[in-house]
Design a protein around this nucleic acid. Structure first.
Lengths: 274, 274
DNA sequence: CCTTGACTCTCCCCCTACGGGAAACGCTAT
DNA sequence: ATAGCGTTTCCCGTAGGGGGAGAGTCAAGG
């Protein structure tokens, strides 16, 4: 019979850990002195402790280990548990590798550009939402701004007139897969809370979200948007994603009368891996 | 200006997280209502939040991120930090891979044997310790038990007679690299607290430890030791280690008059990777 | 003007697997 | 008897929030 310190030295497990295992019921001392509370361990408990350590190295939690040790589970159950752990470890491994790749990409960028990137790309989930939407074809680049102003007004006032409630930030979508110079097909969408009747011009649809939305935030005049687009598309390519649908421009902050320097716009591309 | 809930939906960061970032000073709201305490965020804070998320994906702690965002560090500092993180990630990656390999080995064993292994092998560190040691040559297998009893007695009583204090559990070492059938060279060692004079038979040495000691605990009569040895040597081989010195047998529990079923013995091999 | 339901606030406890430390008590050797 | 460890319980801390309680706020409908 060993006192906790001796047992700790024997097993190379800290006294604190032994007490913790006792508390969890994972490894109770052979005997506890009823007067002093001293814990006394026996050498025969070392195999159990070693099993605990071995399972711990496999990455199991102490709670799981307690189950395994006390309930003497069937081989199938054990196998299931290990397979689960295996899958989890593989996932974590991939995550770590991805993280490492990100860090390496950062380092490369840092070496080449001598500074950190201006735009941070983030992957988000976009929920499906009900929107009122107006489509339009824009003949050329000069008309883009005016057209969007007009069709957003159209959508917004239509929603108001029909008693709808605006429920989120307005955004547009570019429906052409290639970027043409003329006759661009676009949509202006306004999220609404509940369905309202449609019209010829204004449609009401559930616009479906995306699980992976690569997004970047641009701050300032729309003139600089192309840099943001470049950064975003480069990121998508460099990180092994592929564009999977129509891109959006979300107007996080935009006042027609305000200085364009205060605009805040979010560019989003739905993407998928590889 | 958005209330925290709207800002949370915009950024897909939970309200709890936003409040936590506020508390840490990582992302303070644009404005806080002095009467109600309501937090109000502006869209212009989204780039900062995105930077936070991006750094978080790199695996940096929030504290490090706060530094990076507020102190606008030099490129060299950034590079250093990233390199550090890179090294850490590579280490973690290796650890995860090793864990995964362990789990796979377990699964294989489970499939082949239909049961969990009887012996759990654990890697430990062995400290250097002062011991009184007696060497002997054992002519054949029949003499092993009696010889050890005799030389352990010799060492122990010598220590007592010279006023030494026993400081740990007795162990033996097998000095032959191959296992011969006859004339086996062995040592019986008794840890002592402080140096005592030597004799012709009993030497006093600092027996140096090992950083990696593969060990297994055998419970019961010495007859079953060979199974434990097999398991241990197989583990060493299967996990890419190599024996690096003399193996020990530590007598965790042994009473000469007791039933051998109560014996507890620890087998140790110092090992090194690959 | 009142109500109602949805938000928001702060505060507290919870999670893992212990580590650090305080205050009080126990053991053992001189 | 005392000195010096060893051991006990209790409490706090970790990183990054999640869950929930209880109280106060906001906006829209009646």
């Amino acid at each position: 019979m060993f006192k906790i310190g001796d047992f700790s030295r024997l097993s190379r497990v800290s006294v604190k850990a032994l007490r913790y295992y006792d508390e969890l019921g994972l490894l109770k001392p052979m005997m506890i002195d009823r007067w002093t509370g001293y814990r006394y361990y026996s050498a025969e408990q070392l195999p159990r402790l070693n099993r605990i350590l071995a399972f711990k190295e496999l990455g199991l939690s102490l709670e799981q280990i307690a189950q395994l040790l006390d309930e003497n589970p069937s081989v199938e159950y054990l196998r299931g548990m290990l397979r689960l752990k295996q899958a989890e470890l593989q996932q974590r491994l991939q995550a770590e590798q991805a993280r490492l790749a990100l860090v390496e990409a950062r380092l490369n960028y840092l070496e080449q550009e001598g500074t950190m990137p201006e735009y941070e790309v983030v992957l988000k989930e976009a929920p499906t939402q009900l929107v009122a939407v107006v489509r339009e074809t824009i003949p050329n680049w000069e008309q883009v701004h005016a057209t969007f102003n007009r069709i957003f007004d159209e959508a917004t006032s239509y929603v108001k007139e029909h008693g709808g409630q605006v429920n989120g930030l307005p955004f547009d979508r570019w429906l052409d897969l290639e970027m043409p110079e003329s006759n661009m097909h676009v949509e202006a969408a306004v999220p609404i809370q509940a369905a309202i009747p449609e019209s010829d011009r204004v449609k009401v649809v559930e616009m479906e979200g995306a699980t992976n939305m690569a997004s970047v935030i641009h701050h300032g005049s729309f003139d600089g948007l192309s840099n943001a687009y470049n950064a975003l598309l480069h990121w998508i390519d460099a990180n092994g994603y592929r564009v999977k649908g129509h891109n959006r421009e979300v107007y996080l902050q935009y006042e027609r009368t305000g200085a364009p320097v205060n605009n805040v716009t979010e560019l989003q591309f739905p993407v998928e891996k590889v």
